[in-house]
């Protein structure tokens, strides 16, 4: 059940992250070309968290 929640939350959180990075880019705070690896990191963290949950289960 928990792992399932993890899966379901993943998409929205990625979307929010993407939104923030693009907003920061548009405002001229920091360019998206500099911040895109954050998406990879967030994605990786999710995968890691998923593994942790399935192992515990």
């Amino acid at each position: 059940m928990k792992g399932n929640l993890m899966c379901a939350v993943q998409g929205p959180v990625m979307l929010i992250t993407l939104g923030f990075l693009l907003a920061a880019d548009q405002m001229g705070v920091i360019a998206f070309s500099h911040t895109w690896p954050v998406l990879l990191i967030v994605f990786g963290l999710f995968k890691l968290a998923e593994r942790g949950f399935t192992r515990n289960a």
Binding site: P12, V13, L15, I16, L18, G19, F20, L22, A23
Partner: peptide, 14 residues
């Protein structure tokens, strides 16, 4: 303001 659409969208889904 279009990036905020993504944020709102994601937040709603979450």
């Amino acid at each position: 303001y279009w990036p905020f659409l993504l944020i709102v969208w994601g937040t709603l889904r979450l």
